[in-house]
Design a protein around this nucleic acid. Structure first.
Ligand SMILES: [Zn+2]
Ligand SMILES: [Zn+2]
Ligand SMILES: [Zn+2]
Ligand SMILES: [Zn+2]
Lengths: 126, 126
DNA sequence: GAGTTCATGTTATATTATAACCTATCTTGC
DNA sequence: GCAAGATAGGTTATAATATAACATGAACTC
């Protein structure tokens, strides 16, 4: 099931909701309910092979080489595509800021909404 | 209505779900439905006086002096309290990273989950 | 006062996520 | 082989979050 879910997510460049994944997998297997999908997603996220885009309530396959990294997402509000980046510098600085008050960081959520290069050039072709 | 919602959020240190706010306000006015709350929250967020914690699906009153800033949240997984910080350095760096591919950032979501100083010292009082 | 705007009320429903319990399969040591 | 435990997944139901669509009423405009 995890493999199926991962395959569906990888076939897409854009994030998918859990129910979109469910519908896609139902094509072949009509007896498929939300808990199955959410369980697979939870395991994949645990393993770092899928990320949840908190601000979109949606999921994407990880595109990085080594898992277990802190992902930084750029989310285009026009076309919905997502880029995944990594920056030690940001995560270190972020841990430092949060840690100033004695806070012990465990998980980082970094998402940037905006417009991707393609959509910008389309909108203002001057 | 916005004032009522803001007052409810300010009375709490921890984030509240929209339905918690709704229940609180229903104490005085039983004819109150979700759209009313969500509308008030949307307006308050628009004005920068409330933030939505994307990874918690919850809302907090802004604690900063000037609104319109980029908030950085530290969220304690033990006690649920939230600290709000600001860092030009991080937002600049984040815009730079996202912008490398021509992406135009518009809105930043930065949330750090972990354990606050108080809860840490409770857990390991050695 | 008719026309407009704006905030809110009202009803219904969409979307996202999980609880609780059941069943099949596998594995492991005996 | 087979009981005991572990794991994955199925099934049913429901919780929690959020929005669509339309109605009402007050306030302001001319
Ligand atoms: Zn990744
Ligand atoms: Zn785009
Ligand atoms: Zn703020
Ligand atoms: Zn704490």
């Amino acid at each position: 099931m995890q493999a199926d879910v991962l395959a569906v997510l990888r076939r897409r460049d854009a994030p998918m909701s859990a129910y979109e994944v469910l519908d896609r997998l139902r094509d072949g297997n009509s007896r498929l309910a939300p808990p199955t999908i959410y369980r697979a997603l939870a395991a994949l996220i645990e393993g770092g092979r899928v990320h949840r885009l908190e601000s979109l309530k949606a999921f994407v396959a990880c595109k990085c080489e080594q898992h277990g990294h802190v992902p930084i997402f750029s989310i285009c509000k026009e076309c919905g595509t997502v880029e995944e980046a990594v920056s030690r510098r940001i995560t270190n600085e972020l841990s430092r800021i949060a840690g100033q008050s004695g806070f012990a960081p465990a998980r980082h959520v970094i998402e940037v909404h905006g417009q991707c290069a393609r959509c910008e050039s389309k909108e203002a072709p001057a």
